[in-house]
Nucleic acid binder design. Structure first.
Lengths: 252, 252
DNA sequence: CGGTAGTTTGAACTACGTCAAGGGTCGTGG
DNA sequence: CCACGACCCTTGACGTAGTTCAAACTACCG
């Protein structure tokens, strides 16, 4: 009685197409670690400086080398942060969810984006000019410290990614990535711990520095072992421990 | 008439063994982007909170999972930031030089270091407890913003590293890394643009997710082409353009 | 000038990339 | 509601870049 016709278990929340109402805006600003220390009235003032903007699935929010003048906070949807590699291949750096930020923090003019942001699903984002954001930082020093901590966490996470990319086998890299995604996007469902985002083999390949074919082979293998359940653009984890123990193996 | 007996061109500056005098302390604190906005008297106050500590080449400054309670700023020497991978292999995340920082920014107790810091050469570091550092941040809000910008730059750099690690061939990865190191540590010498640090093949391998053997083969090849000069633990670039053009090749 | 640690080179093996063809899933329009 | 077409995924066969193991070499330090 689980699913009748629709096989995909993926269902990214979505209220109004591309728009988020005032209530959501406040909820998001509150949720963002940045402004957690602000009073209600300060938050109202800060809210004035943000604009909201909607994007369709697949749309580029900004592209590599565009002039970098805005900071974005995701209210709804999923955003891919990527860099382009030689031969048309892309590298997927991060998959961002509501409450997370991306774009430019620095207010030097003539600066450009070092990466590309693409909406993976329909997205509503709160935007602010870097200029206005720097004003907030100067006005509320506690915010600067919180932002510093947030970026610091991101840096740790990037370092961990570097470590994992340096791990030899594709098997391990994919195993690691599935666990990482599950921690961030996992939702318990009848099929298992579902990674709640439309995740193609190509995406997985771009995240693990491998090819879609290799990703597919390994995903199939994991499925045969009974560790995961999978379909078109979705993966659910059924045996987290098995994946984790794979990572610790010291293949001599 | 260049070199007589000593073949190694590497000569990392070093005044007193493991100790840096007061003049150097001030010079370093000034040099660090963190405190660039502070007045002379503020800097004197900040200086009080720092202690200096010396480390020998090869010594661990802190180790993975040690309790994280200090922030370090390098006054002299080179520091390797690394993570351990399965099978005793390490991943070299960053090679840090005077003026750069590492360690813990966050003041949550019970936090631990996510990586290991090792002195590559003799090092003198300025240390401060994270607790004291947080006091500085609260006292001088402009510092928090500067630190935020510094970490933000590091994150960009880490993202770029991820992109480069995802590039297929070892040839390209090593070529990229040599250029990156030359930009940071390069000194014009008779042998070419010398990367001023003791750089073993193992280090290069740990930075590019490959093996010492592969690194050696590629280094030899570059040398045969006349693009670099090299010896035991050193590399100097002679044809930067050649290395750069290698990166842009779209090997079909 | 000898020893140690770093480096080079060789040869065998293999995981993974590449190219290519076939099969499944979804959503759009008749 | 069904059927077509697009897109995504799977699987196979093949070639090769890079790892691994091992042995010889050489730059450097004391």
């Amino acid at each position: 009685m689980e699913h009748k016709r629709r096989k995909t278990p993926i269902q990214v929340e979505r209220t109004e197409p591309h728009l988020c109402d005032l209530k959501l805006r406040f909820k998001i600003l509150r949720m963002t670690p940045f402004f957690s220390s602000l009073s209600e009235s300060d938050l109202v003032a800060v809210n004035q400086l943000f604009h909201e903007k909607g994007f369709e699935a697949g749309e580029y929010i900004y592209f590599l080398e565009d002039p970098a003048q805005h900071l974005f906070i995701i209210a709804e949807g999923r955003v891919k942060l990527l860099r382009h590699a030689v031969g048309g291949k892309d590298v997927l750096l991060e998959l961002l969810v509501p409450g997370e930020f991306f774009g430019s923090l620095s207010d030097q003019d003539n600066s450009i984006y070092p990466d590309t942001a693409q909406a993976q699903t329909a997205v509503c984002a709160l935007t602010i000019s870097t200029e206005d954001f720097r004003k907030i930082l100067k006005m509320y020093p506690s915010v600067a410290i919180t932002v510093m901590d947030a970026i610091s966490d991101r840096l740790q996470s990037a370092h961990e990614t570097i470590r994992q990319l340096s791990m030899q086998s594709a098997e391990k890299k994919i195993s690691y990535m599935l666990l990482k995604l599950a921690r961030k996007l996992g939702q318990p469902q009848s099929v298992g711990l579902l990674i709640q985002t439309p995740l193609a083999r190509d995406d997985l390949a771009e995240m693990t520095a491998t090819t879609p074919e290799t990703a597919s082979r390994i995903i199939s293998q994991f499925q045969k072992e009974g560790w995961i359940a999978t379909g078109r653009q979705w993966i659910a984890i059924q045996d987290e421990a098995a994946l984790r123990s794979l990572l610790e193996e010291d293949n001599l």
